[in-house]
Amino acid sequence: MTVLEFDRVTKIYSVRGAGQIKALDDVSFTLTSGQTIGLVGQSGSGKSTIAKILTQLETPTSGQVRLDGEPIPRRGAGLRAYRQKLRMVFQDPFASLNPYHSVRYHLERPLRLDAVVPKAALEDEVRRLLERVRLEPETVIDRRPHELSGGQRQRVAIARALASRPLLLVADEPVSMLDVSIRLGVLNLLADLRREEGLGVLYITHDLATARHFSDEIMVLNQGRVVESGPADDVILRPQDPYTRELRAASPDPEKHFASVSGQHGGVL
């Protein structure tokens, strides 16, 4: 069982002309393997700062991040080993894959860099990774990103994240750039991986409906502070904090809409 602790983390950015901006203010949470936490909040609430600190692209101003009790190493082999255990899936599968390289290259590279399998087993491992993300190795392995659909690309990005056999995944808006009819497929894949392999997933999004559907717990962030957290249904169906209520009221909800207009249509505009 892997436990990631985000312990009273504060991050202050100094911005020329604007003074100091508190991007995160005393944020604490724990992510364990096999668990999905949904992190929601509007633009600028600090969601991505959390992802950057988790991946050590930024260091906290105060507070600490620990993996199984050990603080994250700041540099060197220790940091590399940590990053093997925690991987990111980015929002834009069109930008996060290199257009010059094949799918095979994208997946072999982390396998080689982290020496996950012996050289002779590379090909098999690449195929296995593709199967894990429900892609047919034969059809995609030698293709380049532009020959794939958005959903296929995001699956390749997920396979790449899985290559180093991480324990935790940070998925920052992983489906918001994809077509609506394939979004659930990608989210279901993440849910399957969590269930089958005990991955811990931090799902960062501003979509409350999918956050509710795919998370065990939801954490609501406003101006760098956690204003509410708890089991997904509690937070979404019975929000306590005014900001959470505001977010929920702003999210489209046909169910509630048609219940309230009962018979009339087009009531909102």
Partner: peptide
């Protein structure tokens, strides 16, 4: 299909 691509915000869990 399009309707079932969106999980529900409120009501029963699911699509």
């Amino acid at each position: 299909t399009l309707l079932s691509s969106f999980p529900r915000l409120t009501g029963e869990r699911g699509v």
